[in-house]
């Protein structure tokens, strides 16, 4: 039981760190959003693994409530990031077009 806890916690730590680094190194905005989401899931996995108390015992509900909050906030933040990205593309395209007109 302790072993399972450790295994999932270590997996979570790995996914968190590599998601974070991949997100920092990514070129595209959408790629970054995916990477940050992956990194977030890694962190959630870490918390839930720490809440785990074995097969025959209920897990600690406080980290579960925290992670539930995190999942919902993550989707809202991703949605906002995608909307901002769409607006940026739109502005960039229109400024390109204007440059093309003037030249």
């Amino acid at each position: 039981m302790e072993q399972a806890q450790l295994m999932f916690a270590a997996t979570g730590a790995l996914i968190f760190v590599f998601g974070l680094v991949a997100g920092l190194r990514d070129d595209s905005l959408l790629g970054r959003i995916i990477a940050i989401n992956i990194s977030g899931v890694g962190l959630f996995l870490l918390l839930v693994a720490l809440a785990y108390r074995g097969l025959c015992q209920a897990a600690d509900p406080i980290p579960h409530a925290l992670v539930l909050t995190g999942i919902v906030v993550a989707v809202a933040a991703s949605g906002l990031a995608i909307a901002i990205g769409r607006k940026l593309d739109e502005l960039r395209n229109s400024s390109h077009r204007r440059e093309g007109d003037s030249s």
Binding site: F8, N37, V41, F44, V48, A49, A51, Y52, R53, L55, A58, A59, H64, V67, L68, I71, V72, A74, V75
Partner: peptide
């Protein structure tokens, strides 16, 4: 698997 059914439901629907 980690006995977090609430999170499983939320993750399947949201994540």
């Amino acid at each position: 698997r980690l006995q977090a059914p609430d999170l499983a439901l939320a993750e399947a629907a949201i994540g």
